[in-house]
Amino acid sequence: MAASELQHEQALNTFLDERPELRVELDHLNPLLAQAKGETLAQFRDERLHEAFEAEAERLGLFAWELTLQLTAATPQDYEAQRLEVHREVAEMAGMDWLEYCDLYGIKP
């Protein structure tokens, strides 16, 4: 069960709430830069927010969906359970043995 769109939106809001300096930066983007990319200012802002979110996930050594789960899970145990569930689904879709997958990604089964 990958993170839902609603969970991701909640995670983005939490992420932004925890970074007031990023909110200020996003609220003061140059509209000409958006226009040059053929985007509305809202689209341009949304793209910058997603880039910052993904950069933070990478900095933490996480996939973006893991950061989404981390920011929306009720407890650390809930996060870990959801994270393992998604990793199991990915391993299954990839046709990989679970223990081999865990070894490859440094996951404790």
Rank of each mutant, 00 (worst) to 15 (best):
E89G: 10
N30T: 03
P76W: 05
G61H: 05
E80I: 10
A94G: 03
Q82T: 02
H87L: 09
A55S: 11
L69C: 04
F44T: 01
A74W: 14
Q70F: 02
F63H: 10
H87S: 04
A73T: 04
R83G: 03
E56D: 11
E54L: 02
R88C: 08
A36T: 13
E80M: 14
Q77T: 14
D97A: 04
A42G: 10
A74K: 15
A52K: 10
R45C: 02
E51T: 06
L69R: 05
E92N: 12
W98D: 12
H87P: 01
E39T: 01
A64C: 03
A73V: 03
V86Q: 11
G95Y: 02
A64E: 03
A52Q: 06
L32A: 11
Y79W: 15
L33R: 15
G38C: 05
L33I: 07
L33D: 14
T40H: 08
R59P: 01
M93V: 09
E47R: 15
T68N: 03
D78H: 13
L49V: 05
T40Q: 09
G38V: 01
D97Q: 02
Q35W: 14
Q43K: 14
L33F: 15
G61W: 04
E92F: 06
E66Y: 01
L62G: 03
G61T: 11
L67P: 00
E89I: 06
E56G: 03
E92Y: 05
E54Q: 06
H50C: 01
E66P: 00
A91Y: 04
F44H: 13
A81E: 15
A42K: 14
A91E: 11
T75I: 12
L49W: 06
A81T: 11
L41H: 13
A52M: 07
L84A: 14
H50A: 00
Q35E: 15
K37L: 10
N30M: 02
A91D: 13
R45Q: 13
L62T: 10
R59K: 12
A34S: 12
E56V: 06
E51G: 05
F53Y: 09
A36P: 10
G95I: 07
E85I: 06
A36Q: 13
A55L: 10
H50V: 01
L71M: 11
W65T: 11
L69S: 06
E66N: 04
R88G: 12
A73G: 09
Q82C: 10
E89H: 08
R48D: 01
L71A: 09
E39S: 04
A64T: 04
R83C: 08
L62W: 03
R83D: 04
E54D: 13
L33H: 15
A52E: 04
L49P: 10
E56S: 03
H87V: 00
G61S: 07
T40L: 07
L62F: 05
